[in-house]
Write a protein that binds this DNA or RNA. Sequence first.
DNA 1: TATTGTTATACTCTATAACTATA
DNA 2: TATAGTTATAGAGTATAACAATA
Lengths: 152, 152
Amino acid sequence: MAADSPGIAFLLSQLGAHAATQFGARVEELGLTPPLVGVLRMISVRPGLSQQQLAGELGLLPSKVVAFVDDLERRGLVTRTRGTRDRRVQHLALTAEGTELLGEALEVAARHEDAFCLALTPEERAQLQALLEHLARSHELTPGAHGHRRMR
Amino acid sequence: MAADSPGIAFLLSQLGAHAATQFGARVEELGLTPPLVGVLRMISVRPGLSQQQLAGELGLLPSKVVAFVDDLERRGLVTRTRGTRDRRVQHLALTAEGTELLGEALEVAARHEDAFCLALTPEERAQLQALLEHLARSHELTPGAHGHRRMR
DNA sequence: TATTGTTATACTCTATAACTATA
DNA sequence: TATAGTTATAGAGTATAACAATA
């Protein structure tokens, strides 16, 4: 049974794709993409981290990190600083503009969240949030990263 | 607020991506991909439909449908039949093997569903299903198609 | 010799548009 | 002229591996 009516797994992947697409459209107005927002957020939370650490935390390829940071640096949103102890590493930090833009992106995210859940009552919303967190924990999904994890 | 703790939209896109990836890995053993399962299912539900209709229902590009059907036909899972009234259209149908394989894929989907929701009690599972259906309806997502919808 | 970041390349995926055969 | 299906091509995105600087 449970084969013809959608099922939770299918609904999740359908709703999740929809949520991601919609969020992407919303942050596009800031010149950002969902992964770039994740990068900014991670640098904000752990300023001074290296590109390797960033790649590890977010499950990104190092070469992809280079491209992202190139972009963000060119736009004056993040800075690269060579390590003094180990001159191979690049320490990342947000500029004032980067912090400002991340703030706007987080506001967009909050408005996106509200708009997406508009059909739910506050009680349903809290219920759904709890169930999803439960499910995410059971699959050992970390709150930070997503979508970028490579496999095989 | 609601910016630092994940939020429903983010959890959905994270869990949804995870569910889709896992399902993809599971049907890979049958030589299928999630979109191919969707194609088989649609042909099963509406046998004799044309490639254009299939593209319309699933939100696929016509050229993509050609590639999919080429693949499935070569493997003896579906048949193409020229229309008699209008000889431009190709009517699609499942072979016995196609029906058989779709059945196996749906079993895999059911087992995937159970495994994915293992951490939930039957009550939580029913609750979550209802909430997700509610949310999906509010976003006017059709039960059939997903992930393939093109935009802009 | 190993590691950080970088560059170059190859590979897949997708979308667009040209083409044919029918209408 | 318009449409169904097909083919060819170009573009984006992603992964792999070669490379330079430093350890």
